[in-house]
């Protein structure tokens, strides 16, 4: 157990980090680097070790072995100078009892030795300014989640850890929070984001790590992860337009079949197939579905489960 000095310029650098609780190997040799200014996603099923990972990075726990460097510093023993630069939103939303949103944030601001305006600034940042004087216990689930985010951002941290920040939000609120997160990244902050929403990771993250059972299975940009799957693209045409026999022998077509009133074509060279189909039907009638991060995630985590 020591501090990594290999990458002082990185936001987070972990090398061979292991942590065991009794018989549970929570982290089993995790190595990954998050660059400064990066929007980094951590995807994985429950119990994959995501929480332990964040707790080690903030210095709340020390690993059994491996090196950890956060913004070029060691997170333990409790490093208040470093903690001042970290913003951490956990799933258990910590609020002071029976206060309004503003009073809660003013208290947190004072704990960080900030002035009162920091509270209203944080409320406005998450679009909760109009709820400032409502008691926290009267806020909706989504509003409480945004308040938790405001709590994590009040001291304008450089490195932000978000644990499923959009879990309780409706689709519109999720999208508006995405804009908040994009703006933070635009400001040059580094964001590490754990999520179950793969569409969210695909939309926001520069790179994602897929973790399961305490190990990193893959780290790459969502686009590369999808590409490395080399999953075929599917093209769908209304079945009354074309039959299987019309397309089976076209160049690039790997398989073709009928599904739910549609002709489904599978190919790795969609452009070539689309060109050929253009001669047979109106291109507007064709729908294309390329592989998503979800396919990559499922492919990786299911192989992992089969192996164990």
């Amino acid at each position: 157990m020591s501090t990594g000095d290999g990458r002082p310029d990185a936001a987070v650098a972990l090398d061979g980090v292991r942590k065991r609780y009794g018989t549970v190997q929570a982290l089993d040799g995790v190595s990954l680097t998050v660059e400064r200014g990066e929007f980094f996603g951590i995807l994985g099923p429950n119990g994959a070790g995501k929480t332990t990972l964040v707790e080690i990075v903030e210095g709340l726990r020390t690993p059994d072995s491996g090196t950890v460097s956060v913004l070029g510093e060691s997170p333990w023993p409790r490093n208040t100078a470093l903690l001042r630069r970290l913003g951490i939103q956990t799933q258990s939303s910590a609020f002071f009892t029976r206060l309004t949103a503003r009073e809660h944030l003013e208290t947190v601001a004072a704990l960080y030795r900030l002035e009162r305006p920091a509270a209203l600034r944080a409320l406005d940042l998450v679009d909760l300014g109009d709820q400032a004087d409502r008691r926290i216990d009267q806020l909706s689930g989504g509003q409480r989640q945004r308040l938790a985010l405001a709590t994590a951002l009040i001291h304008e941290p450089e490195l932000i850890f978000l644990d499923e920040p959009t879990a309780a939000l409706d689709p519109a609120a999720r999208r508006s929070l995405w804009e908040v997160l994009r703006a933070l990244k635009g400001d040059g902050r580094t964001i590490v984001h754990t999520t179950h929403h793969l569409d969210e990771a695909e939309a926001l993250c520069d790179r994602v790590a897929i973790v399961a059972r305490g190990a990193v299975l893959a780290v790459d940009s969502p686009r590369h992860l999808i590409k490395s799957l080399s999953a075929p693209t599917t093209l769908r045409v209304p079945a009354y337009r074309l039959g299987v026999e019309d397309v089976r022998d076209l160049p690039g077509v790997e398989s073709a079949g009928i599904e739910g009133g549609e002709l489904v074509i599978s190919t790795h060279t969609a452009n070539q197939v689309l060109l050929a189909l253009g001669d047979l039907v109106d291109l507007e009638e064709i729908t294309t579905r390329t592989a998503t991060l979800e396919d990559a995630y499922l492919a990786l985590t299911t192989t992992e489960q089969c192996r164990s």
Partner: peptide
Amino acid sequence: MHWRRDDLLRLIWRTPTPLPTV
């Protein structure tokens, strides 16, 4: 008990304010 259960102690732990102050 509430501060610990609701993770407020951990929030305090992350700030520069010493526990005896709180």
